[in-house]
C-alpha cells in the first residue's frame, strides 16, 4: 500500500459518501445517471468475486464490502425508493449502456492476463469501469445546471483513478515484477474521459460560478 493508492481509495470512498449525502439530504436523485450506478454495481460484483476466496487484508475486504453494498443500495434507492425514484431523470438518462457492457465483455475475452473465469471477469470490470461514467457525463450535459453535490461526486470519482495512475507509476519504479498494464491503460482512458469535465469544473471553481457543461 502506498500513499497514492490510499488517497485514491479514500477519494473513491468520498465520492460515494457525497452521492449518498446528496440522495439522502435532498431525497432526490435528479442529475444522477442510474445507468452509471448500475454499471458500477456490475464493475464491483465482477471485480470482487474473489472476496471470499482471496484474502488480501482486512482493509481490502472491508472496502470491497463497502463499495458493493453502497453501490447496490444506491441502485435500489433509485429504482425502489418511493420518493427518490420520482426525481430520476428517466427521459434524460437514455445512454445505451448495454453496448458498454457488451463491448467490455468482448474486449475482456480478447485481452486478459490469463484465460480463466476470474481473470476475464477482472478484465471485464476494468474495461467497464473505464466507460461507466459515460451515461453520467451525457446526463450532465443534457441536464444543464449541475447541483454542487453532483458535481463534487463526479469530480472525486474522476480524481480517484487519477491517483491510482500515480500509484501504478510508483509501484512500477519500486516493485521488480510489477506489471499492471491492463489496469493502467484502462485507467488512463478512464481519467481522460473526465478531462473536459475537470476543465469546466475548474472554471466554475475559479469564477465561483455554477458548474455548467456545454451541450
Amino acid at each position: 500500500m502506498n500513499i497514492f493508492r490510499f488517497a485514491g481509495d479514500m477519494t473513491h470512498l468520498i465520492s460515494i459518501l457525497v452521492l449518498l449525502l446528496k440522495i439522502y439530504a435532498t431525497k432526490s436523485c435528479s442529475g444522477i445517471s442510474r445507468k452509471t450506478q448500475e454499471l458500477y454495481a456490475l464493475v464491483f460484483l465482477a471485480r470482487y468475486v474473489d472476496i471470499f476466496t482471496e484474502f488480501i487484508s482486512v482493509y481490502n475486504t472491508i472496502m470491497k464490502i463497502v463499495f458493493i453494498a453502497s453501490t447496490l443500495a444506491i441502485v435500489w434507492c433509485m429504482r425502489g425508493h418511493r420518493v427518490v425514484r420520482r426525481s430520476y431523470d428517466k427521459e434524460l438518462d437514455t445512454f445505451r449502456h448495454y453496448f458498454l457492457i457488451a463491448a467490455s465483455l468482448v474486449l475482456a475475452l480478447l485481452v486478459h492476463e490469463k484465460f480463466t473465469f476470474q481473470e476475464i471477469l477482472w478484465a471485464f470490470s476494468i474495461y467497464l469501469e473505464a466507460v461507466a461514467i459515460l451515461p453520467q457525463l451525457v446526463l450532465l450535459q443534457r441536464s444543464g445546471n449541475v447541483d454542487n453535490l453532483t458535481g463534487q461526486y463526479v469530480f472525486f470519482l474522476g480524481a480517484y483513478r487519477g491517483l491510482y495512475i500515480l500509484n501504478w507509476i510508483y509501484r512500477y519504479f519500486t516493485e521488480p515484477h510489477f506489471s499492471r498494464w491492463i489496469a493502467c491503460v484502462s485507467g488512463l482512458v478512464q481519467t481522460a474521459l473526465y478531462a473536459d469535465f475537470f476543465y469546466y469544473y475548474f472554471l466554475s471553481w475559479k469564477n465561483n460560478a455554477k458548474l455548467k457543461l456545454p451541450a
Binding site: R5, D9, H12, R47, D50, E54, I56, N60, M63, K64, F67, E113, W122, Y164, N167, E175, P176, H177, F178, S179, R180, A183
Partner: peptide, 10 residues
C-alpha cells in the same frame, strides 16, 4: 511471478 500479478488493489 504469479504472486506479483495477484489483484491486491481495489
Amino acid at each position: 511471478r504469479w504472486r506479483s500479478n495477484r489483484h491486491d488493489e481495489l
